[in-house]
Amino acid sequence: MAEKLIELKNLTKRFDDNLVVDRISLDIYKNQFITLLGPSGCGKTTILRMIAGFEEITDGQIYFEGKDLTKIPANEREINTVFQNYALFPHLNVYENIAFGLRLKKLDQSEISDRVARSLSMVKLIGYGKRSIEALSGGQQQRVALARAIVNRPKVLLLDEPLSALDLKLRQDMQYEIKDMQHQLGITFIFVTHDQEEALTMSDRIVVLNEGKILQTGSPEDVYNEPVNRFVASFIGESNIIPGIYCGNRVVEFFKARFDCVDDHFETGEKVDVVIRPEDFEVVVVQEGKITGKVADIVFKGVHYELCVMANGQELIVHTLKSPNIGDIIGLKVDKFEIHLMKVS
């Protein structure tokens, strides 16, 4: 495993009586792209602000390379932030915005111009140095904000929902570019977002948060395929959650049928939630499927059709390349590896 860079221990934040971050413990490793993912108000931005030093911590500790980070003021931390609204200085041009941190370090003119030029080329804004901030588009401002942060060569880059103000196409391009940048720089990125797709695309590791608590930590595949509870399952991607009973020996019963599965850490007879992703159903003729349902609705989504199937009184969302008609009775098949069981929360 990589070297530990930041360690959060029982990190807690209260605003008056409002518990925003509740005893969070998390290790963040070197050269890792870690995403704090959760709905608004889950405390993800507050955690970021505590790491940056803009917010006092109520309780717990933050260690940075083994040292207590809370004793170091924000301006002396080897951490830089890309703000949600970019926070570019309106009275300075692009060059001076990027050079801001370098000038404070009193570097030579030649080194400053050299490093600014390199970071401008990294964000693909060569030749934009003399532009004023107001003359830039949202996407270009975003790039300047990135350049201004990375030019200081921080050990950690914090990104607070940096893409939320961009339109879809630009957002997708920036996702790849930021991911690329992290590879090139080889530093730790801590990325905060409420957008699960962004998190899945970019991260090495995802931390799912809700109401100030960590629900699950893992690779994008882990979090998508093995959500720990109903909240994570429904927050990340679309999913069908079906009540069932674990029958022992890797067999689960739901919709009045028994299915083989791969999870076994449950007691025989225990109630479980069964998660099946829409794309994991296979539409077959009635005789071949263990589940029978009636197509209630069908929507064309480009690559696939999205069916709404009524089965045993529950609505299931099914993605398929076939296009049955509304009212058709169909069979549904699921591979045992695609059946994921969760504790009932």
Partner: peptide
């Protein structure tokens, strides 16, 4: 004044006096 500008200047290494002379006063 946008308070995130003050945070940004802190973030980039400005001490309290520098935040004032380089950001607050000019703005």
């Amino acid at each position: 004044m946008d308070k995130s500008l003050l945070e940004a200047s802190r973030d980039l290494g400005a001490n309290k006096l520098q935040v004032f002379t380089k950001v607050v006063f000019p703005l």
